[in-house]
Design a binder for these strands. Structure first.
Length: 261
DNA sequence: AGAAAGCCTCGGCCGC
DNA sequence: TGCGGCCGAGGCTTTC
């Protein structure tokens, strides 16, 4: 579930530990998969103090004196601070938290605990992540940056949906946000990226911003207008057209056959 | 039983 | 025809 909006709320939660000193860190073998060894996390984090907290796309960043600690949340990761969730609830998966699904975290000198709850174990800890591998952040994307996101080297380029999900080009948009912004922009997700006209690019840029603001206000990536029609045989809530679905960019995609051209 | 909102790797093939 | 890089498929993992 975590797309950029959820991770941004995790960031806001984690902001509260700025200034705190880490006394202990732990991680299970999955959470530590990108590290040299499972024990590396404990070793690296001990004694560090948190200088600042930020986010790049779906990656949460904790700057400490010396290293940058990062968290990827995968599909079901949630950040908890002393049992308080960074978000309201999960769309998929359980709507409850279980101790057995706490996969790792940090403990501070003041007694607080920041932990990752992740039933499906696709969340990952990282140390000094390569931020160069990520495109510009979707929440602060300028029009100029967006035009670069849509720049294609050859031919028609990938389907526009696939390009929006490509974290190396644009950081933060996941499957649900991608579908919602295309739904609002009235664009067929299968369209080759380079086939978009100037007007369509403008429409999509506005839709991206509007989608992020609106769903941010509503409280999550799963609260988009097209969500009620995310099943086989659904009818478009906007114009009653038949909804279609296919795998695009590796993810299940839904769109309206009538107003998304 | 099948599909799931993320990410990573690999192999095929596209276009120069 | 050769090559680099792009792009999609598949896998990971567990749950409902």
């Amino acid at each position: 579930m975590p797309e950029i909006l959820e991770v941004d709320s995790y960031r806001a939660l984690a902001q509260r530990v700025v200034g705190a000193t880490i006394t202990r860190g732990w991680a299970d073998v999955y959470l530590a998969k990108k590290l040299s060894a499972p024990a590396a996390w404990s070793r690296v984090v001990r004694g560090r103090s948190v200088k600042s907290v930020s986010r790049r796309g779906k990656l949460l960043l904790l700057e400490t004196d010396g290293v940058t600690l990062a968290v990827r949340f995968g599909m079901t990761g949630v950040l908890l601070l002393d049992g308080e969730a960074g978000i309201e609830g999960l769309f998929y998966g359980p709507h409850e938290y279980r101790a057995q699904w706490l996969r790792g975290g940090l403990e501070f000198a003041d007694g607080r605990r920041l932990v990752v709850h992740d039933p499906r174990r696709l969340a990952r800890f990282e140390v000094d992540p390569d931020l160069g591998a990520l495109g510009p952040d979707a929440l602060t994307l300028t029009r100029r940056e967006f035009d670069r996101v849509l720049t294609v080297e050859r031919g028609e380029g990938p389907p526009i949906k696939a390009r929006l999900l490509d974290q190396a080009r644009l950081a933060g948009v996941g499957n649900l946000l991608g579908d919602e912004m295309l739904f609002r922009a009235g664009l067929d997700p299968r369209r080759g990226t380079a086939t978009l006209t100037g007007d369509e690019r403008t429409r999509l840029y506005r839709s991206l911003n509007q989608t992020l603001r609106t769903l941010g206000r509503r409280g999550g990536s799963h609260l988009g207008d097209h969500m009620v029609a995310r099943f086989a045989g659904a009818t478009c809530p906007k114009d009653g057209g038949a909804m279609r679905s296919a795998t695009i960019g590796g993810r299940t995609t839904f769109w309206c056959s009538r107003h998304q051209k």
